[in-house]
């Protein structure tokens, strides 16, 4: 959902006291009962508990002791945390734009008049569906392994190597970024929907004025598409920070080699559910919220300079 949509929706829901409406409090309670229970017990309660635990040394076995800011002080000197931040930022800053560029490029190629367009779209979308699964992460291990598909193909062109791409700290993260880019199908579908919103008359008018295809792309398609690009960017950035499965499977849960696949959430998992430092894991979770919040804020702030809104 876009920001404008969000605002519109909150505004609409805020119109509670319309004169003709008698409140439906009882009915609302019946319909919202499950949600209210879930919100209190499974989200709001845990949010507050997590906030508290972030200031304790809780480890599941002993009672939580208040340790003040110790968890946050530890973050400053925790080299594995710093490594996980480097890994995750690299993944987000390379993978997200890379994926969106591929998605946009293919969406532009899939012209409406093109024969077989639906078939292409389905084929390109399929990896998005599969990409998050353990099965594909398993496949990635075998594709980029020492005797895997990639090295076999390199062998065909005369480059003989058995160095594992996922076993080397220099290339392991690259394979996961590639996996992310590979799932370009869902932003592509969003781009296709956005392209359909651009009035065809604009192109006709521009063509009459003698604008060539490149000029039409720069003057019409790109500016009118910027809100969709922005929407995809915000969404993909938020999601990418939570990426977990692929790095876990490809590294066998370790984050290796040499912590080159130590994604943030993988580190959080190790701290919380392998070492049972749940207090520290809670603090890490809040740092993640903060990071995602800052990135989203930066995205919104930057959007002033490049996103074109029609008004």
């Amino acid at each position: 959902m876009s920001v404008a949509e969000l605002q519109r929706l909150t505004r609409r829901s805020g119109r509670v006291r319309t004169p003709q409406a008698t409140p439906d409090n009882k009915a609302a309670l019946a319909f919202l009962g499950p949600w209210v229970l879930g919100a209190l017990v499974l989200t709001l309660g845990p949010i507050l508990a997590s906030l508290y635990l972030a200031f304790t040394d809780y480890n599941l076995l002993q009672n939580a002791n208040w340790v003040g800011l110790a968890n946050f002080e530890r973050m400053l000197t925790d080299t594995r945390l710093h490594q996980s931040l480097v890994v995750t930022f690299t993944y987000v800053l390379v993978g997200v734009p890379g994926q969106l560029a591929v998605a946009l490029g293919l969406a532009l190629l899939l012209d409406r008049g093109l024969r077989g367009r639906a078939l292409y779209r389905s084929a390109f979308y399929l990896p998005s569906l599969l990409g998050a699964s353990v099965a594909i992460a398993v496949l990635w291990r075998l594709v980029f392994g020492g005797t895997g598909l990639v090295n076999a193909m390199l062998g065909l062109v005369g480059i003989h190597t058995t160095t594992s791409w996922i076993g080397s700290p220099d290339t392991a993260l690259g394979t996961i970024i590639l996996l992310h880019i590979w799932t370009f199908g869902s932003p592509m579908v969003i781009f296709l929907a956005g392209l359909r919103q651009i009035p065809v008359e604009l192109y006709e008018a521009a063509a009459t004025d003698g604008a060539g295809p490149w000029r039409r792309f720069l003057a019409i398609t790109l500016p009118l598409l910027t809100p969709i690009i922005f929407f995809n960017l915000v969404l993909a950035t938020i999601n990418s920070f939570s990426s977990f499965t692929q790095a876990f499977i490809v590294s066998g849960g370790t984050g290796g080699p040499s912590d080159s696949l130590l994604f943030y959430t993988l580190y959080l998992y190790q701290e919380g559910f392998s070492s049972f430092r749940m207090g520290y894991a809670s603090a890490l979770a809040w740092l993640l919220v903060l990071i995602i919040g800052v990135f989203t804020a930066i995205n919104f702030w930057l959007s002033k300079y490049w996103v074109h809104y029609e008004n």
Partner: peptide, 12 residues
């Protein structure tokens, strides 16, 4: 809300 914020208390 990232699931990681609530997962520890939910697990407990």
């Amino acid at each position: 809300l990232p699931v990681h914020v609530v997962i520890v208390p939910q697990y407990i």
